[in-house]
Design a protein around this nucleic acid. Structure first.
Lengths: 157, 157
DNA sequence: GGTAATCAGGACCAACCCAGTACAGTTACC
DNA sequence: GGTAACTGTACTGGGTTGGTCCTGATTACC
């Protein structure tokens, strides 16, 4: 179904949450304001930090902060950070491990163009774009976890 | 990963194989000429027939034939036929079953744009394009890396 | 009319991958 | 030095996917 992993979905939500405040936020606080389980948020943030999308601060009063604004963060970067390089099939440049039927496969190498098209499409859309185009701001979300502050579209630019 | 299922990969190979000859071909013959296991080929062909991409003929001397030329067959159609509608996340228009955290999810509906971009990209590329850009039919097939520049696995990351 | 070849439509199973959890270790602030 | 927070790894349960098999329906050939 050509779908991306739930972790990537979480990552986008987490990044959007981080962008809502300018100060360092801990994973428990992000978890409570997004509704995503704490350990999972921690896992996502660790991965994002390893990829350089967020900056981590260790120790007491540590936490995470965006390392660049959402407007400079293409969706492709997030997907790559979480799921690894974008490669539709095993036969694509950059994919690890070739397919075992290369000898017979008359289509080898033919996915590269398709893959490239998708990379371009995903590289052209930033997280800031995603926030904008939805334009339906989250309505007053009631009740959960007591956190009301939410995404305001940053004066991204 | 954002990768599509192996079945889709097989489908493309099978369709390319069908296009190589103009007459009806049986699934065993397609299997032997592609190297894909017979039962799997049969499964793929059945699915493709249900989606209308190939036409089936029952009975002795039956088989399958392309119902339209590859140049009129976008990659998106093949993916949709095998894997179902293209929907990156559960939150996308057309996806079945919403995600359970809609109340908190500040990103709901935001994937639509991304999804749409991918659909466009995949809808604009036909299987004939894939054959072309790979710069030709599989010449003598044995996979000496010398003549086939494409498949190196850089394991970039 | 009988037989063989072929598709149609399931059910079924094993293997793999992913999401989520837990725990021990490391770093930095107070 | 104690505490709070990130870092890294290992484990497990569940779901999905790939692949196989079986039975029935349909058609061509003898």
């Amino acid at each position: 179904m050509l779908k991306l992993s739930r972790m990537t979905d979480y990552a986008v939500v987490v990044l959007a949450r981080l962008s809502a405040e300018d100060e360092v936020q801990t994973s428990p606080s992000v978890a409570s304001s997004t509704g995503i389980p704490e350990p999972t948020v921690a896992k996502v943030l660790k991965t994002l930090a390893a990829a350089g999308l967020v900056t981590s601060f260790r120790g007491a009063r540590g936490g995470y902060r965006l390392s660049r604004p959402l407007s400079a963060m293409p969706v492709a970067d997030v997907i790559t950070a979480i799921d690894g390089p974008i490669a539709l099939t095993a036969c694509v440049d950059g994919a690890t491990g070739g397919c075992e039927c290369q000898e017979l496969c008359c289509m080898r190498g033919r996915w590269n163009g398709v893959n490239e098209a998708i990379r371009r499409a995903l590289g052209a859309i930033t997280l800031a774009d995603m926030q904008k185009d939805g334009r339906l701001m989250p309505p007053p979300l009631h009740g959960a976890a007591g956190a009301t502050p939410q995404i305001h579209v940053p004066a991204a630019e």
